[in-house]
Amino acid sequence: MNPFAEKKSVKAVEDASLALYPGRATALVGESGSGKTTVARMLARIYDPTTGVIRFRGQEVKYKGARVASSLRAYRRHIQMVFQDPFSSLNPVHNVRYHLSRPLRVHGHARSEKEVTEQVLALLRRVSLSPAEQFIEKFPHQLSGGQRQRVAIARALAARPEVVLADEPVSMLDVSIRLDILNLLTRLKDEEQLAFLFITHDIASARYFAEDTLVMYAGQMVEGGPSDDVIQSPRHPYTQLLLSVAPDPDRVQQVINHGNTSVPTRGEIPSLIKPPSGCRFHPRCPHAMPICSQEKPARTEITPGHWTHCFLYDQPGEKPAKQAKIIDAKSVQRAK
């Protein structure tokens, strides 16, 4: 890629590949501006990728050419998003019944008034808002942040999706409520076999909720694999940076014993209008070598399923066996 040829376009996401599986969650972590939301929006097809392929249950989802509209409508039914801000994602003039009955009607899951009421109540129970009969008449201002986020989740479930894209669903909530929501999402994932993309900048909650974790930096995926592997033995220097800055009360023991030993972080995420050449992390990387600014590091498999893009690791590893993918996005990109 010649950065000068595309001066005006922001490659918000470049060459991102990810797969989601029923009953599993993939966490997408990275600092602000790394392109996490953009990935989710491409998967939800709010944005069209500039290039690349998205497959749903093996079928390519078209975004160019004939029958785009029907292909898209069929796809969107199965994919729902939950957003960060439970205060602005619900309309203050409408009650809970309205918010949940709309998607039921739009997707043709309920027709008569009685059917709608029954299903709305069932949805409220699924997200543990009980007594459901009370919550159904409430307005957003009568709900706490956590309860609003439950309504937002129920609204996503109303379309009967198979995939939920949750963009920082807990970061605006009080710490004590975050865990409740994470436990609710875990139940939906395990018991109802929903596939989740879970965007967060809190690595600890990625480990708590998601089986797999992907780390994104400046629009590129730099490391990925089983959450415990990525978080307990991070390989990419950027993942190591993210972990070193994560709030970690267990570090208190270290501080008590040895004083504050935190390493200073260096620099900021680069502008994506003219991203650094080679490995995009090289200006901030403590291990950067001459090759890092010249070439893009290829993907290296470290242990089965755990991979990274970094010149520090270039021995090939074994290829792991894969489960059937429900979403398979290959090399999707988006320029703005």
């Binding site: 975050r178 865990l179 909650s205 480990r207 708590y208 978080i231 972990l243």
Partner: peptide
């Protein structure tokens, strides 16, 4: 009430 980075993964319950 917050997940941790270390130790075994276990279900937490909060308040």
């Amino acid at each position: 009430s917050f997940p941790t980075l270390h130790g075994p993964r276990r279900k937490m319950v909060g308040i």
